[in-house]
């Protein structure tokens, strides 16, 4: 009996193995044919694309954050940034689920952001948003803290013009994608306000902020949130060791300010 069983196993294993060999050889051949023959195209796979949900989810508040390192949270010990603290604050105030989508990239300039906004996935997320928060411009102006050593008015004016035209395009694009969500554009502070040249730098930043706010005012529901005053005094207490990005305390200040604005918005809706 045992011998019969053995023989049987042997036959089965052999046949299965031979079949497997053929299968794997076929797979190998297919790989060669597939990988080494060219000029195939990604065929029309697009049909299914539109099933993508662009509808807003009910019951959840979707915050779409975009911009540069400030939105990313560089310098915060917990890595949350103001968007993280903002979400925490809002959670205390509402029963709604809050969904935070953060697409910010460190070192992003207005030009980079404009380019990022052309990506279909970013656009989809922008459409879903109930609230949009962004920071942009810091890298246009400061270029990682280096540029302000050169206080040449012409150079700064040139940068400002480019920035303003980009920001205008960003606003337009966002409004086209999502006509309803309020956009909170968090403004610049002066990280160098305790440096010797603070008078000049502060005036540059103030002017920058003013122009941005003016641009924002040309659109519906875009709030340019000032932060200049938050950091004006005691700037050293609110900056991270790089003397450029906010630290945890600094981010909390920004978050608080934005949170208060969002709350106001909701109460108005309810009444």
């Amino acid at each position: 009996m045992k011998a019969v069983l053995k023989k049987y196993t042997l036959t089965v294993v052999s046949i299965v193995s031979i079949a497997a060999t053929v299968l794997w050889l076929f797979g190998l051949g297919w790989t060669l044919q597939d990988q080494f023959s060219t000029n195939k195209k990604v065929s029309q796979f697009k049909e299914k694309t539109d099933s993508t949900s662009t509808e807003k989810q009910d019951g959840t508040l979707t915050i779409f954050a975009l911009g540069d390192s400030l939105t990313r949270g560089t310098g915060d010990a917990d890595g949350k940034g103001y968007t993280g603290y903002l979400t925490e604050r809002l959670k205390e105030k509402t029963d709604q689920d809050i969904n935070l989508l953060n697409t910010a990239i460190k070192g992003e300039t207005s030009r980079g952001l404009l380019k990022q906004l052309q990506q279909s996935e970013i656009q989809r997320q922008a459409k879903q948003a109930d609230v949009i928060v962004m920071t942009i411009g810091g890298n246009d102006l400061f270029q990682q803290g280096a540029a302000l050593e050169n206080l040449d008015n012409n150079a700064i004016n040139g940068k400002k013009q480019i920035y303003l035209s980009n920001v205008k395009k960003i606003y337009t694009q966002l409004r086209e994608l999502n006509p309803d969500a309020v956009i909170y554009h968090v403004g610049l502070y002066n990280p160098f306000s305790n440096m010797p040249d603070s008078k000049t730098t502060s005036s540059i930043v103030r002017d920058w902020n003013f122009q941005s706010a003016e641009t924002a005012a040309g659109f519906n529901n875009i709030v340019y949130v000032p932060t200049f005053d938050l950091f004006q005094l005691q700037v050293e207490n609110y900056l991270y060791t790089d003397q450029f990005h906010p630290n945890t305390e600094g981010y909390k200040l920004i978050a608080e300010r934005v949170a208060s604005l969002i709350k106001f918005e909701q109460e108005e809706n309810e009444s």
Binding site: W24, L25, F26, G27, L28, W30, T31, D34
Partner: peptide, 10 residues
């Protein structure tokens, strides 16, 4: 998967 298994076998 079939292609990858072909390579694995190889």
């Amino acid at each position: 998967i079939l292609m990858e298994f072909g390579l694995v076998w190889y």
